[in-house]
């Protein structure tokens, strides 16, 4: 079984839940930016939650199928059509052999996830099918899908169409709040600057991709005076190159914060002021440029409670779709 790419969209990549374990060599975990959406799409079509699907940003692909295939689309809100007939998001529907799946204009969110019954069956690279284009690893020859690609799909376990109770989904409210645990090099900032970081309204900049999301519109950073340590570099935002974590917030030159995401660079010479909590990482993957965002300070206790709430929501969905 396979589908053929008629139009690829803007940047559509094969993604699963990633390849942890190689970040110490500069190869990021990668995988779906919105893990929740990919997991639910896979549940709907009867796959393991970590099966590989497609992640399409801002624009959907156009695909034709060589065999009847159970498909589910989750994540961003985008009209779905099978041979011109509309289909619902967050539901599993059959696309028959010879039919075409295509998408309308994006209405809300940023990334759709398309799961296929049986899962995409491209070769594993370091234990994952996720595409890491910078390192030319995974997916289809380490790149986004292109017109003419024939993408293999595994053996489906079911062809049952079904949909999800939408009340199990949590709508995103505006302005978006991203919860942050301060730390790392937070002490490099003056108290006034620390307060401004949380008080200011930021917007998502156009430079927002799988590696990281950049924000602008807030005040530039103000650093505590110091003599720069040997090897760090002369800018006050420089440190001796250290590790970066997923979700960590760096501010090169003290100007625009960047939140590193699934295809993060693993280290570098810019100070980091803390990190977005794990429970809010999926949400970042659904932010469009120009979205208004506030950073909200939380404690570790609150971060762990948010993480638990997220886990419970997933468990409820799992029970509903079992």
């Amino acid at each position: 079984m396979a589908f053929k790419v008629v139009k690829p969209g803007l940047s559509t990549t094969v993604q699963d839940l990633g390849r942890p374990g190689y970040f110490h060599l500069g190869i990021p975990e990668g995988g779906a930016m919105d893990r929740f959406a990919l997991r639910v799409a896979n549940m709907l079509v009867g796959n393991d939650e970590g099966a590989a699907g497609l992640e399409a940003v801002f624009m959907g692909p156009e695909l034709t199928f060589d065999a009847d295939t159970l498909v589910a689309v989750t994540g961003a809100e985008m009209p779905i059509f099978v041979d011109g007939e509309p289909r619902e998001g967050w539901s599993a529907f059959v696309v028959k052999a010879g039919q075409t799946l295509r998408f309308g204009f994006l209405k809300a969110g940023a990334r759709i996830y398309i799961a296929f019954g049986g899962g995409i069956a491209t070769p594993l690279a370091l234990g994952s099918r996720s595409t890491y284009p910078i390192g030319a690893l995974g997916g289809i020859d380490g790149r986004a899908i292109a017109a003419g690609d024939v993408v293999p799909v595994g053996e489906a376990t079911t062809m049952t169409e079904r949909s999800l109770d939408r009340s199990l989904l949590v709508p995103v409210s505006a302005p978006v709040s991203l919860r942050v645990l301060t730390g790392l090099y937070w002490h490099r900032l003056t108290p006034a600057c620390q307060a401004r970081f949380f008080a200011d309204e930021w917007v998502v900049a156009p430079e927002a991709d799988r590696m990281g999301y950049r924000f602008r519109g807030g005040s530039p950073m103000e650093f505590v005076d110091r003599e720069q340590p040997f090897g760090a570099g002369s800018d006050p935002s420089n440190i001796v190159d250290g590790c970066y974590s997923y979700g960590s917030i760096q501010v090169p030159g003290g100007q625009e914060p960047i939140v590193l995401h699934r295809d993060a660079v693993s280290g570098g010479g810019y100070f980091t002021l803390g990190a977005v909590i794990s429970a809010d990482m999926d949400l970042i993957g659904q932010l469009q440029p120009n979205t208004k965002v506030r950073f909200t300070e939380v404690t570790m206790e609150e971060a762990l409670a948010a993480r638990a709430a997220r886990r419970d929501r997933l468990a409820k969905l799992r029970a509903a779709l079992a």
Binding site: G231, V240, A275, A303
Partner: peptide, 17 residues
Amino acid sequence: SFGGDEHVYVEIDEEMS
């Protein structure tokens, strides 16, 4: 220091040696 809720960051020294 903690880097979010999934990382511990350990800085041996500010300067390189």
